[in-house]
Design a protein around this nucleic acid. Sequence first.
RNA 1: GGAGAGGUGGCUGAGUGGUUGAAAGCGCUCCCCUGCUAAGGGAGUAUGUGGUAAUCCCGCAUCGAGGGUUCGAAUCCCUCCCUCUCCGCCA
Length: 408
Amino acid sequence: MLDKKLLIKSPDIVKKNLLTRGYIFNDDFWNNLEQERKIAQVNLETNQENLNKLSKEISKVKDDETLIEQASLLSSLVKQDKEILQSIQNKIEEFLLDIPNLIHDSVPVGEDETFNEVIEEVGDIPNFSFDPLDHSFFIEKSDEGRGAKIAKSRFSALSGDLAKLHRVLGQFMMDIHTNDHGYEELYVPYLINKTSLIGTGQLPKFEDDLFKLNGNTDLYLTPTAEVPVTNLHRDEIFKAEQLPIKYVCHSPCFRSEAGSYGKDTKGLIRQHQFDKVELVKICHPDASEDEHLKLIEDACKILELLELPYRKVILSSGDTGFSATKTVDLEVWFPSQNTYREISSCSNFSDFQSRRTNLKFKADKGNKFCHTLNGSGLAVGRTLAAILENYQTEEKSFSYPKILNKYL
RNA sequence: GGAGAGGUGGCUGAGUGGUUGAAAGCGCUCCCCUGCUAAGGGAGUAUGUGGUAAUCCCGCAUCGAGGGUUCGAAUCCCUCCCUCUCCGCCA
């Protein structure tokens, strides 16, 4: 949610900014709505004030027929005014919830992912003396179609070494982030309500991407731990010295993957269910750019310890997600595809989610909205896939990163 | 799932139709006094929002959430959510 005051004061700035992500801000619609709101609100509050005064009169005089009659009339007027204002405010709310976050100055402008910019490449791309196999070769050997049998396509059942490697990877990442990077570990619900999803920006716009539970409930399967973790402190006010808050959470994630038919159908790249270790920060607005850099480093560290070649990519304005002001993706090398694939997405949401979740801190002059950040540290399934690809041997087998020895 | 109790400001806790946005206490902030690891006195201390650019001023809203009754609701009625106790069930 954007700052209403900014929308009122400088709609042109907002419009220009949002255009860089291909969003057309309807300023005429907004201005009219805001005008209407102002008139309706002043009208209601004036009538309410008069009614309150009258009621006080009545309480002093008691049983004054004419006064009560007057008040009765005014009361019905106030009731009408309330309905009018409410309907305008509903429209405003609906409109505001649909507007994406502003793009940060440092983000390259461009309409789609072709304008993304590689910041840095780290690690040496492996040189195989044979044609590297797609990681799905190993997955399929383990799964044998059973994930699809017991659930449906885009689900995998891993066994033996792969299942163990998968478990160990999650644990390894958690250990690094809690022990070396100072994040507090969380365990959270995997079913989350609508309010939480609105808070982080998945709803109302992206309902199709989610699995919703049937029955008399507003619960959804969590698409990322970002949702429960960021919402953990909803409607809370921090002391300035409590910030930054740093959380890490290992959780399964569920996504409908609507609209990705035919894409990455094999292997672990695009599943309805996958595990992810998520880093979430809540911080002072002045600190968010710095905290973003550190968060990216924390995620990179995992790739480096696993000795996987990767690159950092800053997303262009057009490719940056709805809630983010700036996003840096980490992409890991996939030899079979001869390309880098996303394994982590680290975003700064500025105060966008804080406004939606009412997440504040005590500042010198009143309470201010915090900034929120998050990033994968890392997606576990994709990490497993990357290891299978980069550590494969000519004998159609694979080895492990040294750092995992103590776990295996 | 059954039966009962309850949700009030940072916390404890009064308040069952009319200056109650809310007593009192604790905590916190500032001032005074005193002078030594403390005590006493005074003042202040919710949030959101509108009029406005404003941290002043004035108004409106908020006592779990949403409706209703009423001139007027923290107080009465309805629905929902949550917490606690006992029973049942269960990992």
